[in-house]
Design a protein around this nucleic acid. Structure first.
Length: 778
DNA sequence: GATGGCAACATTTTT
DNA sequence: TGTTGCCATC
């Protein structure tokens, strides 16, 4: 579980052990409470689980029964508390593993928690539900979705599928996609769903014409989803809530089953998720939520801090335990982070403290442009590796938007520093992968119109728009699905080459179905699609880099599929993997990622780059105080990921979408206490006002080039820089235990970086205007 | 119905 | 800047 597929970037879902049917607890094979004396069967004595914890942590672990709110500051050992608490519930005989539902934010976090629980209490841990909200909902829905008119093999639409569907609806209704961009329509729909507002309610509330239009689209969108037996991400939550509301027997089943509910990152739950928790806990009230309002960074996607703030209203008898001692960062880093977050006005004041050492100052660099900034990052990473003895895996670079990774990738390639970009373009978003998956989705769910339309002419088989329109019309007239129309292409009026093409497709689908019926696993089916459609032949003929890459991707997809026996499970895992799941804790590579992906992680050394107003905080947040505060929380999250070394930088000019513009340093930089910050040179400090034409004057221009992945010998890892978790029991997110996903470094970065820009073409840094310059440290 | 070329557009952040 | 979608042509 949770282990990256060897050689591929597709991680296996960390969600569940055995994907068993929902059974009564007694059938789950674990001894019940009272029947298992503590301390034997490989279980630790409950008191052992309290060792090494501070007082509030201990209370949070040991207090059973009743609602509990743990306010866990950054680095306060929250994951550890959560894990120990679950183990304690089991070890003390309070709960059976099967009675516990633990919700985490990412699949990777779920996988790690499960791993640690296995370490603590043994294999019985696999009887627990440890998963994300979405994965837990899918699991419930697989058993009961038919009660609401969905197939049990429903399809999960990702963001792109959803957008295509909205786009299609807008077009069919002749609505102007300029005035009503699919993106914003979808955002409105998604926002409504995350607050459990259905389309009738949405329509009733609609005031402007704009809103009324969206309401109409929302209505049809939902109808089409149901007709296709498909759910978008929001539906997974909404439909589950609807299910539990509509079917009291189902609700009762799960209320009885999950006697203990635990939720991590509660500040990032939306109203639908909150409702789910409240419903499940309504009977027993054994609900423990952990969160930190200062780390709420998903407001833009419907997360609602009120959930955590109002927890005590929902459960007046709730205990509240704050964890304020930080075990992660140096005092300097912590003070700096506290100073920044202190500028948020709508905030319950709280102060993290640390007994750790003071540590080094925050290092700040003022770069000419993003290339200069990236070169500085590369040079500092070399220094950390060579002088401070850090491994590359100890270093992370965070940025606000994925687009910023480019310059960094180039510089790192040039400096021969091995790195890994986490997130960005996802494996399963690649065309050939989505194409093959669409075939499998049609087999799993023939009602899935979007997928059927996608494959009807992929690869090219002469079925054009007119034929598709005929099939579509026939399906509508007959009240059948689009996939069924394929079998009646002749009746539908499809002729000639197109008709041949459609019957070829039907042949492929028939083969796939019989393979599935004969027990062929997902991997076999991936192979079959590649063979029978001629996809493989086409790609093999393509000798370009892209062609080879695509072929490789299909191989990787088959490899990922081989991890599963069941088609539905495989498709579900593909739909639910996230960027953060891609992290493999490879000790030999620097990690590059967005700030949000960084949540929940920690690194000995952290770079926060692109700290300019308009980049971070993001342009769209500048004039909205609420969004600005969210950006500041994001900054806080980023800073508190660092253990010992924190670097911040900004560039005076930055090229974005092909045009270069000036930028002033981020206001967040001005919020850092000057005495905690050390300037490390760069424009406007070492040579104020001067154009810096000669790159070789840079101290790092003569950085020794090493082979990528090279690092100091393994023997030097004895000091605490190298201990992934000197204070704890493995709370560090960078565990290095995972197998490296070989070849997952994006080839694009290698080819780009292999051709360094000739010095002569290096754009001269624009003069930093006086009014843009900040007095040092203020 | 397929292909190639050009213009317009786009970037927050993600389960 | 890179991608996507539209249009004209074969």
């Amino acid at each position: 579980m949770g282990v990256a597929v060897p050689g591929g970037p597709l991680p296996r879902l960390g969600g569940f052990g055995a994907y068993d049917e929902l059974g009564e607890p007694d059938e789950m094979g674990d001894p019940g409470p009272g029947r298992r004396p503590a301390g034997i069967d490989g279980l630790p004595a409950p008191d052992e689980l309290l060792q090494g914890l501070n007082e509030p942590q201990r209370r949070a672990v040991a207090c059973h029964g009743g609602p509990l709110l743990v306010i866990a500051g950054a680095g306060s050992g929250k994951t550890r508390v959560l894990t120990r608490r679950v183990a304690h519930l089991i070890a003390s005989g309070e709960a059976r593993p099967s009675e516990i539902l633990a919700i985490t934010f990412t699949n990777k976090a779920a996988g790690e928690m499960r791993e640690r629980l296995v370490d603590l209490v043994g294999p019985v841990a696999s009887r627990m539900w440890v998963s994300t909200f979405h994965a837990a909902c899918v699991r419930i829905l697989r058993s009961h979705a038919d009660r609401l008119g969905y197939r049990r093999s429903f399809t999960i639409y990702d963001a792109a599928d959803s957008r295509h569907l909205v786009d299609r609806i807008l077009r069919e209704r002749n609505l102007d996609t300029k005035k009503l961009p699919p993106r914003s329509v979808l955002a409105a729909i998604s926002g409504a769903k995350s607050e459990l507002v259905d389309f009738e309610t949405f329509r009733a509330r609609a005031v402007t014409i704009f809103e009324q239009r969206i309401a109409d689209v929302y209505g049809e969108y939902q109808e089409r989803l149901v007709a296709a037996s498909a759910m978008d991400f929001d539906d997974l939550l909404v439909v589950t809530v609807n299910l539990l509301q509509a079917c009291p027997d189902v609700l009762e089943t799960y209320q009885r089953r999950f006697r203990y509910v635990l939720v991590d990152e509660y500040q990032d739950t939306n109203r639908a998720q909150n409702e789910l928790v409240l419903m499940l806990a309504a009977e027993h009230h054994n609900v423990c939520v952990v969160g930190d309002a200062d780390q709420s960074i998903y407001g833009f996607r419907g997360a609602d801090i009120r959930n955590i703030l109002e927890f005590e209203e929902a459960f007046p008898e709730a205990q509240v335990i704050p964890l304020e001692q930080n075990y992660r960062s140096t005092r300097t880093i912590l003070d700096a982070a506290n100073a920044v977050i202190g500028h948020n006005t709508t905030r319950v004041p709280k102060a993290l403290w640390s007994q750790g050492e003071t540590g080094e100052p925050v290092r700040r660099y003022r770069a000419d442009d993003e290339h200069d900034e990236a070169a500085w990052v590369a040079a500092e990473i070399c220094r950390l590796r060579d002088k401070e003895g850090l491994r590359l895996g100890d270093v992370a670079v965070f940025y606000r938007t994925n687009a910023q990774s480019r310059a960094l990738e180039e510089a790192l390639v040039r400096a021969a520093i091995a790195f890994k970009v986490v997130g960005g373009t996802r494996f399963y978003d690649r065309r050939e992968v989505k194409d093959v998956l669409a075939y499998l989705r049609v087999v799993a769910n023939p009602a899935d119109e979007m997928s059927a339309r996608r494959i009807v002419n992929v690869p090219r088989r002469g079925v054009g728009d007119t034929s598709v329109a005929k099939l579509s019309a026939w399906a509508r007239a007959e009240g059948r699905s689009f996939a069924e129309a394929l079998d009646h292409a002749g009746e539908a009026g499809v002729v000639g080459k197109a008709l041949q093409g459609v019957s070829a497709l039907c042949g492929v689908l028939a083969d796939l179905r019989s393979a599935a019926a004969a027990g062929g696993g997902p991997a076999r089916m991936v192979e079959l699609v590649a063979e029978r459609t001629g996809y493989r032949t086409v790609l093999e003929a393509d000798q370009t880099v892209e062609g080879r890459g695509r072929l490789e991707n299909l191989g990787e997809l088959a490899g990922a599929a081989a991890e599963y026996d069941d088609l539905d499970q495989f498709l579900e895992s593909v739909a639910l993997v996230s960027d953060a799941d891609d992290l493999d804790g490879d000790a030999s590579r620097v990690s590059l990622m967005t700030l949000q992906t960084a949540k929940g992680l920690e690194f000995p050394a952290v770079f926060l780059v692109g700290m300019e107003d308009g980049v971070f905080p993001h342009l769209r947040a500048l004039d909205d105080p609420r969004q600005l505060e969210e950006e500041r929380r994001l900054c806080y999250v980023g800073m508190t990921r660092a253990r010992r070394h924190l670097y911040v930088s900004h560039a005076w000019s930055r090229t974005l979408w092909g045009s270069t513009s000036h930028a002033i340093p981020s206001r967040f930089l001005a919020e850092l206490p000057p005495e905690l910050v050390q300037d490390t040179g760069g424009a406007s400090t070492s040579r104020p006002g001067a154009l810096r034409r000669v790159p070789s004057r840079r101290p790092w221009a003569s950085v020794p080039v090493r082979d990528a992945g090279d690092r100091p010998s393994a023997g030097d890892g004895a000091d605490d820089f190298h201990d992934p978790d000197p204070w704890g029991d493995g709370d560090g997110a960078v565990t290095g235990r995972r197998a490296a996903a070989a070849g997952s470094q994006r080839p694009r970065s290698v080819t780009r970086g292999a051709a360094p820009r000739p010095t002569g073409t290096r754009r001269l840094p624009k003069m930093a205007e006086e009014r843009f310059r900040q007095p040092p440290g203020r």
